[in-house]
């Protein structure tokens, strides 16, 4: 399968001013984020990146569309080397990015104008723009709100507008950096539904960075990062079965897996920690209680 994003021996550090200078007495204030990160995202996949704060997941996200450039190694996105400055806009057209706070990524004071923002920047003719804006708004289920002001919308709706603004560019891949972190449960569900539909129906590659394990459980692949390294990389059920390892890096597991893990710890050898969804868990418990 083709890789849409691939990081090879990626190295990156922030140059921090003063503060830490006195602390560790280094001559150069380099805060190393990655040393040699290797991570590829397959075209059309739905990948979740998990990790504790400061593990480098957002930094990785910013490398995917050339907001940050590697200090060493190579980053390829949508077939272009991100350090090739002449390709900057090609990369950003192909790799869209959605951020945490929907309020801070909406530019215009009318929903449809905001969705059109990227297209206006790209110089798309008005007739085509109209069609693409409408399509994008329909894809996230916000078409009825096209003439509203973003300030009248709920958090989940705003985030869907922000996603529509990205979809309108028709990117091959959307990188979402904790898009649900500031939303209420209803808003989170709306956004997750939208993301999953885009992946399934439109074939858009999704890279989702999140703190929520139940969101990670819905992906095809889960990548767990810690201190700039990939420590686990597999299907959700495989990854979550490593309960202790996840705990070590400060992560939880879905509640169903947690329950299975505790049952196993307490002597039920048949409890399977590969169970991640509530349905599977309920089925298992039913069998258990019936004494099968």
């Amino acid at each position: 399968m083709d890789n849409i994003i691939s990081a090879k021996d990626l190295m990156f550090y922030y140059s921090e001013p003063s503060e830490e200078e006195q602390d560790n007495g280094q001559e150069e204030n380099k805060v190393l984020v990655f040393e040699d990160l290797n991570l590829s995202i397959e075209k059309g996949s739905f990948t979740v990146i998990l990790g504790h704060n400061g593990c480098g997941k957002s930094t990785f996200a910013k490398h995917t569309n050339a907001i940050l450039l590697p200090c060493g190694g190579k980053m390829t996105a949508a077939g272009f080397d991100t350090s090739d400055e002449s390709r900057l806009f090609d990369i950003r057209k192909h790799i869209g990015m959605v951020f945490q706070n929907p309020d801070n990524q909406i530019v215009a004071s009318v929903v449809e104008e905001d969705v059109a923002f990227a297209l206006e920047n790209m110089g798309v003719p008005p007739e085509e723009m109209r069609v693409r804006v409408d399509e994008a708004l329909k894809a996230v289920g916000m078409y009825e709100y096209r003439e509203h002001s973003p300030s009248q919308l709920s958090g989940g709706q705003k985030q869907r507008v922000a996603i529509a603004g990205i979809i309108a560019m028709k990117p091959d891949c959307i990188v979402l950096d904790e898009p649900t972190a500031m939303l209420d449960p209803a808003g989170r569900r709306e956004v997750m539904k939208t993301i999953k539909r885009l992946n399934r129906e439109n074939g858009v590659t999704i890279v989702l960075i999140t703190h929520y394990m139940d969101e990670a459980a819905q992906a095809d692949r889960v990548v767990v990062m810690d201190s700039g390294r990939v420590i686990l990389d597999n299907t959700p059920s495989e990854v979550f079965s490593h309960v202790e390892k996840l705990r070590e890096v400060g992560l939880d597991v879905p509640q169903s897996t947690q329950l299975m893990y505790l049952l196993r710890e307490n002597g039920r050898k048949d409890a399977d920690t590969h169970i991640i969804t509530e349905e599977e868990c309920a089925d298992f418990l039913e069998r258990l209680l019936r004494g099968e």
Partner: peptide
Amino acid sequence: LALAMECRCYNGGEGRTKL
């Protein structure tokens, strides 16, 4: 906001079209 605008190919007024 500046970051989000950059991600959406904002490049000043040149070559812009209007909805």
